[in-house]
């Protein structure tokens, strides 16, 4: 039996100098270069490592605008077997709820799935909510914040990194696994695979195909709205230069300002 693996990937703006549309208060994506969310590259690599040992089919699924094609092709070139981009005008402005609903609906259209991988979070919205949301929509278990992910005989084993320790978890499939950023080294795309990937191309699905109504998805289907965006007032700091010779003076000043205090 061939293991069916799904990897959820998102295209994100690369730059930190993002431009915000003053009207919609959303990101102006036309101004920035787009890349694959880095944790999602780790998620794809986790899937590929399972496929190195066990016969598997890897499908990458993304919800995004047409330009996410470059991400889809990149995933194919790294070794994914199939790429599905869910793209539709109605999907714009989605918060995590309809994003999860849309991705879960796409996954539910596949014949079968055993493991779904997602990144721990996306670098642009950094909620980490979409993965667990998809697991809930599909009614399956999840293991979040994982590294050292292995598959054997119907079970996934992984290490979950928590604030106060590491949990080793074993869970039967089907299961959704979210993968930590930098938890592995994503393999390179080979030229041969790149050529194949472009030839194979991605599939584009719209919301009719997913049997979703326009009012359920995108901005209309989002329970949260952004009322305001403010730039955060940064505390201005002087960056006063201190030479090696001036270090004793600095220490004196810090003591006098009670920034350094006696330790009891």
């Amino acid at each position: 039996m061939v293991l069916e693996i799904v990897v959820m990937v998102k295209q994100v703006p690369d730059s930190q100098e993002v431009v915000i549309d003053p009207v919609t208060m959303n990101l102006n994506r036309s101004m920035t270069r787009n890349v694959t969310n880095r944790a999602d590259e780790n998620a794809l690599e986790a899937a590929l490592q399972i496929k190195d040992k066990t016969p598997a089919n890897i499908t990458v699924v993304s919800m995004g605008p047409p330009q996410a094609e470059s991400t889809m092709i990149e995933c194919l070139a790294r070794g994914a077997d199939r790429a599905i981009l869910v793209s539709d005008r109605a999907l714009g402005g989605a918060d995590t709820y309809p994003t999860g609903l849309t991705v879960a609906s796409a996954i539910s259209k596949l014949d079968h799935f055993d493991i779904i991988f997602a990144g721990e979070e996306s670098s642009d919205s950094s909620t980490g909510h979409v993965g667990p949301g998809v697991a809930e929509f599909l009614g399956i278990d999840q293991i979040t914040y994982c590294s050292k992910i292995q598959y054997e005989d119907g079970y996934v084993t992984a290490e979950r990194e928590l604030e106060d320790g590491t949990e080793v978890v074993k869970c039967p499939t089907p299961v959704l696994v979210t993968v930590l950023l930098n938890s592995n080294y994503p393999r390179r795309q080979t030229l041969r695979r790149k050529i194949d990937a472009v030839r194979k191309g991605m599939e584009v699905w719209n919301i009719e195909k997913l049997e979703l109504k326009p009012e359920w998805v995108g901005v209309r289907g989002s329970p949260t709205i952004v009322r305001r965006m403010q730039s955060i007032k940064e505390k201005q700091r002087e960056g006063k230069k201190v030479t090696l010779e001036q270090i004793p003076d600095l220490v004196k000043e810090l003591y006098e300002k009670k920034i350094i205090r006696e330790v009891h």
């Binding site: 915000i20 709205i225 009322r227 403010q230 730039s231 955060i232």
Partner: peptide, 10 residues
């Protein structure tokens, strides 16, 4: 947006 902005969400 990399902590540069604060969004108020309702």
């Amino acid at each position: 947006y990399g902590e540069s902005m604060l969004a108020e969400i309702l």
